[in-house]
């Protein structure tokens, strides 16, 4: 498998989220109704990325429910087109070594089947960190601890450093 094939194997995947997160996703991204009380993101993937990074910052991975209780959305490679955002995210993801069962050099010697498993492992990592981040947002939201400022997301993000 070439570098390009490996990358496209990752970027053609559609990460999933638990159906129970739909209200949250609608409330905090443009998919929802127009008159929201809170600051919001544009497309779902923005909130999803944000949640994933929160998850990584807070080191909270949360497994998803069985597949039929989840939904997918945009392919990873189409998140923020014409930008290297996804490359940056992959950089962060591939440094989460305590979560990943392989060593970079090992990858180069794997059989295709094994490599596909690695790709799944990476996608699961993305999904589980995103789920962890969404859970955190959801809890704050339910407790009424999210403020209504336009800077709510960046403030929250900053304070987790």
């Amino acid at each position: 498998m070439t570098a390009q094939e490996f990358k496209s194997n990752i970027t053609t995947k559609r990460p999933r989220y638990a159906d129970s997160r739909i209200p949250l996703l609608e409330a905090f991204s443009e998919k929802g109704s127009r008159n929201a009380d809170y600051s919001r993101f544009g497309p779902i993937y923005e909130l999803y990325i944000y949640a994933m990074m929160l998850g990584i910052k807070r080191k909270t991975r949360l497994p998803l429910p069985p597949r039929n209780l989840t939904s997918d959305f945009l392919e990873l490679g189409k998140w923020k087109r014409d930008s290297s955002l996804v490359d940056f995210l992959l950089m962060i993801i591939f440094t989460q070594t305590e979560d990943l069962s392989f060593d970079w050099n090992e990858l180069e010697d794997m059989e295709e089947e094994q490599l596909n498993k690695v790709v799944s492992e990476v996608i699961t990592l993305i999904e589980e960190y995103a789920n962890g981040g969404l859970e955190y947002l959801e809890t704050l939201w339910q407790k009424g601890e999210l403020d209504t400022s336009h800077y709510m997301f960046i403030d929250l993000y900053k304070n987790l450093n």
């Binding site: 498998m1 070439t2 570098a3 390009q4 490996f6 990358k7 490359d87 940056f88 992959l90 950089m91 591939f94 970079w104 990858l107 180069e108 010697d109 794997m110 059989e111 490599l115």
Partner: peptide, 11 residues
């Protein structure tokens, strides 16, 4: 088997 130098390098 799989040359991934470019994968990481390009990232």
């Amino acid at each position: 088997k799989n040359d991934l130098e470019d994968f990481f390098g390009n990232l």
